[in-house]
Design a binder for these strands. Structure first.
Lengths: 323, 323
DNA sequence: TTGTAAGCGTTATCAA
DNA sequence: TTGATAACGCTTACAA
């Protein structure tokens, strides 16, 4: 693998001249410059990133961190991030939680987008700095070097639940995710608020806490069935769990929506295919936006600290039009 | 950000002693060792990867490269890779085609797994070396430093098409991917071989070349419909295109499987949900295996050059049991 | 058992 | 317009 010295030797110049050419310095003669560039091509020389990173202290690489392989919308988010990054001089690096802290250092990456339940707030606070901005998805934190992009969960969830009430549903079950997650908190709050506004009692035994995976939706529905009293509508905090619940229900001969309505959140491909009533989150767009925010921040542009993305209710076949 | 010198100063030793501790050298007194480790924690010191990579010339990071955000099985492959890597001392870095060549250098990563149509063979040949092994998925190349893991497309595709023939289907349509891809070539060959064995004529106008995306399946089916003569069975080289085709067909009042049978390949979540007859590829497992192969290679273990993964036909509702 | 010093490939400063 | 040299943070002989 050719190094800068090999290029310098081949061109009969010192290696600092080569460096100057490669970094666009204009203190190099035109003839020398083009000669060096040609030799770089011939020798297939690419600057060593470690040497460069060591010296410069920055990398022009941004990092995206995720660790959930069950929710396919991650691919859409990556798609959005990738498309924005490709229009810039930056490179995109993706990692999972194990290696994230290691990669979140100045000499490896210049900033980070994270959407990972396993990422601890304290790590974010420790890492975010003037010259290492972070964009956090689906979580709100207060820090001058951290920008948050969250989905407006509250409004569409209210619309969804009110829609169920309007259709005649009165007895509800709720399947949430881990309780410390922002999404679950907001969606559950909207759910509760609608019920209170409509003077509908919600027994706490009808709350089930899952982990966003299909299996826990399956488990939740199974438990509802075993408990004897099935609600009229099962509101799930995401699509995977809603689909798991539907699977459990239909395996036991309970029809959706005739016997029970089920709703999700995410509008995954599967939700669309299965006709699940849900809320559509523009994933590609929020990936794109996150990358834009991060890179603008790295470049020194200030932008807003908290951005709320709106989401749309999609009424489909898992809810009857009139109960 | 604390450096090795800060740690050395705080511990009252030279920085090479700190380095020795961090690298598990045993020429350090027990007392000094534990004191240094404690100080590293207090100061939140992590070795600078650039400095380390520069000196060592290797990184203990493996790279995975992909660029297709439509096919959700990539998440499963990543899941498998990630799970294997997490059991080792290695880190996992993921990238898309834009940055791949940059990251495929010794000072950034120690080896690479690639599954990307955009990755050129010449780049693989140029990059693969004694100390930079590469694992390629879904492609066969001859190179001592490149290992290939491919799906056995031929056998299950033969089984699938023969199954269709056995069920009475005689007029076929075929939707392929880009023709230079190994998957398309092998699956098409199996398809043709079965037809020849059964003395069934396949008019070349019934071959449509797509790009693996749902949309091109939609287009293909639309063209078949416009051409007037619809085949009895539409064999698609992957699920996305099969689902796109089904969408186009049903939008035009053509029923699957009553009017036409449709088959895919991949066994995506969507295929399962939609009841698409397809071939199941163990994606998690091949990711896991790819990571294992790569890392064993980096560690100097020789392993087999070409590995064929077997895949299973899944008969579902998009094919009638008897035509 | 610990410290000194060289060197990895690059960029930046300053002198020629 | 060019080149010599120091410095980035680390590892590793080798010397103490």
């Amino acid at each position: 693998m050719a190094g800068i010295k090999d290029v310098a030797k081949a061109a009969g110049v010192s290696f600092s001249t080569v460096s100057n050419v490669l970094n666009g310095k204009k203190n190099v003669g035109e003839e020398t410059r083009s000669r060096i560039l040609k030799i770089c091509e011939e020798l297939e020389y690419y600057p060593n990133a470690a040497g460069r990173g060591l010296k410069r202290g920055n990398s022009n690489i941004i990092l995206f961190n995720f660790s959930d392989f069950d929710r396919t919308f991650y691919l859409k988010i990556i798609n959005g991030i990738n498309d924005y990054v490709n229009r810039t001089e930056f490179d995109l690096m993706i990692c999972t939680i194990k290696s994230c802290e290691k990669f979140m250092r100045n000499n490896m990456t210049s900033g980070c987008i994270t959407l990972d339940m396993g990422m601890k707030n304290e790590v974010l606070f420790k890492t975010a700095k003037e010259n290492y901005p972070i964009v956090v998805l689906d979580r709100v934190v207060e820090n001058p070097f951290i920008k948050c992009i969250v989905v407006n969960n509250y409004d569409p969830m209210k619309e969804l639940v009110q829609g169920l009430v309007d259709r005649g549903y009165r007895k509800f079950g709720f399947i949430g995710g881990p309780e410390q997650t922002n999404d679950t908190q907001e969606r559950y709050q909207a759910f509760l608020d609608v019920l209170v506004e409509n003077h509908i009692y919600f027994p706490s035994k009808n709350y089930f806490s899952g982990d966003y995976r299909e299996k826990s939706g399956f488990t939740a529905a199974t438990i509802f069935m075993l408990s004897g009293e099935l609600p009229e509508a099962l509101v799930c905090v995401n699509d995977n769990m809603a689909l798991g619940a539907i699977k459990a229900l239909s395996q036991n001969g309970i029809r959706v929506p005739e016997d029970i309505a089920v709703t999700g959140f995410d509008n995954s491909d599967l939700a669309e295919a299965m006709g699940l009533t849900t809320v559509d989150i523009p994933n590609y767009e929020r990936g794109y936006l996150a990358a834009q925010y991060l890179i603008e921040n790295i470049m020194g542009k200030r932008n807003v600290d908290l951005f709320k993305i709106s989401a749309q209710v999609r009424w489909r076949e898992t809810v009857s039009s009139k109960k």
